[in-house]
Write a protein that binds this DNA or RNA. Sequence first.
DNA 1: ATCTGCCCATGACCGTTGTCATGGGTTCAG
DNA 2: CTGAACCCATGACAACGGTCATGGGCAGAT
Lengths: 201, 201
Amino acid sequence: MIRVLIADDQHLVRSALAALLNLEVDLEVVAQCADGDEVTAALALHKVDVALVDIQMPRLDGLSLAQQLSQTHPEVKVLVLTTFDRPGYFRQAFEAGASGFLVKDAPPEDLVSAIRKVYAGDKIIDPQRAMLSVETQRNPLTDREREILAHAASGAPVSRIAALVHLSVGTVRNHLSNAIGKTNTANRIEAARKAREQGWI
Amino acid sequence: MIRVLIADDQHLVRSALAALLNLEVDLEVVAQCADGDEVTAALALHKVDVALVDIQMPRLDGLSLAQQLSQTHPEVKVLVLTTFDRPGYFRQAFEAGASGFLVKDAPPEDLVSAIRKVYAGDKIIDPQRAMLSVETQRNPLTDREREILAHAASGAPVSRIAALVHLSVGTVRNHLSNAIGKTNTANRIEAARKAREQGWI
DNA sequence: ATCTGCCCATGACCGTTGTCATGGGTTCAG
DNA sequence: CTGAACCCATGACAACGGTCATGGGCAGAT
């Protein structure tokens, strides 16, 4: 019997996944959590073999959670679930110590077989996505550039960004200009979009 | 026995919801669809009492689908599901002829009880959300403003928008300026964000 | 010790964007 | 018929944004 923990911020999805998995005779959902903090609490109470964690979660997101679990509970295999298939997520998930990666658009059979494989110690690598992942180059942005670009994403004018980051407007514009160059886009907005897609911010 | 149709673009969520609903003795999931077009096809094959449709779907989205169903299949009750609780969705859903509205963060009991109520002919109105809905004012944007703002959302410069819409750059700027004024924001990007949040575009 | 890369800053140039005044066109309601 | 509310367009001004050259400070690497 494989003991599964489910972490997803949407109650309905969480329960529905639990219902789906409980249909399998060799799977047992032992805990359901709405965010990363609940997961750590749940791990203290239950023995868990496989943790199914959504990337998009409030407070402690799925990737940070995966990273944390790989250190505090290395015996728990982490299977990362995501709604959006951003190219960066795949790499980030494995860097964070996850054993598998699945898109929510995958057929349910893939999910259960992934859980069994991960439990057996395998890594789930979709060859097609692995290709895509090597193509995506590493984050070329510096810390400052990422920080400033993140603020720019919401449409804030340079002056406001400068105030938020405690820098001169000129410096902010330089950082943005660099980010725009590195992403080879035309303006801060497109740069922010691209950076987000690539998982750089 | 209430016959339920599920429409959600994410395979896993779709199947999981079906598993959840099939646990109820008086519910039967008769069809699962990935987009609006599959729904119309499925309705030709099965008798359906309640259609559970996600707003976010490719091709034919949930709201348009609800509108279409209310005309072609008025006997089918539509229950709209959404991941994001944008203030505009609630009103739009009922304007489109939906009988109920639920956020994916709702507990599963709410979903099954909503299905039963809707089947019985009731409308599902969360009083708290209804309040919120009257607060949200109607779309103040004109057709052109919406169209142009939608293009602006992706970060395209005015020149490109003008080309896309076959207008002069000056006119585009005027429309944008109007939209910015009506949303009382500082620039096109914030205007686009706000408009999207309010369900105006 | 020097080089490289990142950080911060300034000033200048020019293109883009937001605003405003103004004008002409349409359609629809009173 | 006359407003009212759209639509489209122009020209002009001020503010904002993206680029570049330049320069200084501070790390870690060779």
